[in-house]
Amino acid sequence: MRRWNPVRRKPPEPAAPPPDARAPLHLVQADTYANWEAIYLHNVDRIYRLMFSKVGNRPDAEDLTAEVFLTALRPLRVSASVGEVRAYLLATARTVLAAHWKRTLGREITVIDLDQMAIGDEPPEETSNSQGRVEQLLAALPERYRRVLELRFLNSCTIRQTAAELGTTIGNVKVIQHRALRLAAELARDDPSLQG
């Protein structure tokens, strides 16, 4: 399990995306891909991150990413342009995610909004958007609620560690965490700009 590193508490400003060792190697001539492997290597990172932002856990994100590529690659023409490939993968991802929620919880918890996705090749804007949204949402909560959510969700603290940090009981942390999520959900419902 990843341990909390205090230095990382505030994520670096979005300025420079981390250099990706894989993608540039396979980049593309004249806006098309050389073969399916190039398509895969150039897009897998983005699709995975997108899925992770929609399901919030690694096992599901990995399964759904695999499903997207297993579904999409065979019918895909290699001659398609980079933009077309990306749009096709995103459309597939949207379908796969919708089916996932339908299968598990019976209702769509999160959706991939194709209109919101920039078609450009910039590194996932979605991530920085959601960072801002989360910060906004947390700021709108009462101090104690905000602290519990920060410690548990962003800083990977256990319930016990959170209780120690806040000088309260484990039971109390559970209660606050539950109420904080409910309250945050209400805030997000009333303010559409906070919604995912």
């Binding site: 932002s53 856990n57 990995e62 991530t127 999520l181």
Partner: peptide, 26 residues
């Protein structure tokens, strides 16, 4: 529940450094 889940997923996905795919998976 669905609304609370949406928030929980958003918060969890915002944990620094957790959204990168594993090399083994790729």
């Amino acid at each position: 529940d669905a609304e609370a889940l949406r928030v929980a997923i958003d918060l969890r996905a915002a944990r620094p450094g957790s959204d990168a795919p594993h090399e083994e998976f790729i």
